Amino acid sequence: DIIVVALYDYEAIHHEDLSFQKGDQMVVLEESGEWWKARSLATRKEGYIPSNYVARVDS
């Protein structure tokens, strides 16, 4: 799995977006363009995230 960590807070604009806080970790489910589908490890919610707001966690 690709794990990313939030670099900034993000408040969902559309209902399919995923809100998150700086430091939150998410599993990337699908990478396509600038918006990635991800699942929050904390809340288990899924939605689209702006890929420029996150960084990959080296395992």
Rank of each mutant, 00 (worst) to 15 (best):
I49Q: 00
R56E: 06
E31I: 14
E31H: 15
G33F: 05
K37P: 07
K37F: 15
T43P: 02
E11A: 11
V5I: 14
L18G: 01
L7R: 05
A6G: 06
D17I: 07
D9H: 07
H14S: 11
H14T: 09
Y8A: 09
A38L: 04
R44Y: 14
K22P: 03
A38G: 05
I49P: 01
A38R: 00
D9P: 08
F20K: 00
Y48S: 05
K45T: 07
E31N: 15
F20N: 00
V5H: 05
R56F: 12
I2W: 10
K22L: 06
D1E: 14
E16C: 15
D58Y: 09
Y8G: 04
I49H: 01
E31G: 13
K37Y: 15
L7Q: 05
S32C: 15
L29P: 00
S19R: 05
M26N: 00
R44W: 14
S59D: 11
W35F: 10
V5L: 06
I49R: 00
K45H: 09
V57G: 05
A6F: 01
E34W: 15
E30S: 11
M26C: 01
K45L: 12
V5E: 07
P50K: 06
S40M: 15
G47E: 01
A6D: 00
V4C: 09
I49S: 00
V54L: 04
R56A: 08
E16S: 12
G23K: 02
R56Q: 08
D1Y: 14
S51C: 12
D24Y: 02
G47H: 00
E16F: 14
F20W: 01
E16D: 14
S40I: 13
H15E: 15
G47S: 00
S59R: 11
D17R: 09
L41N: 05
I2Y: 15
Y48H: 05
S59C: 13
A42P: 05
S40Y: 04
L7G: 01
E46Q: 08
S32E: 11
T43I: 04
W36T: 08
H15C: 13
F20H: 01
Q21E: 08
V28A: 03
D9V: 03
D17Q: 15
V57L: 14
G23H: 04
V27C: 10
S32P: 06
K37G: 03
N52D: 11
I13W: 09
E46N: 04
N52Q: 10
L41P: 04
E31C: 15
D24Q: 07
W36E: 02
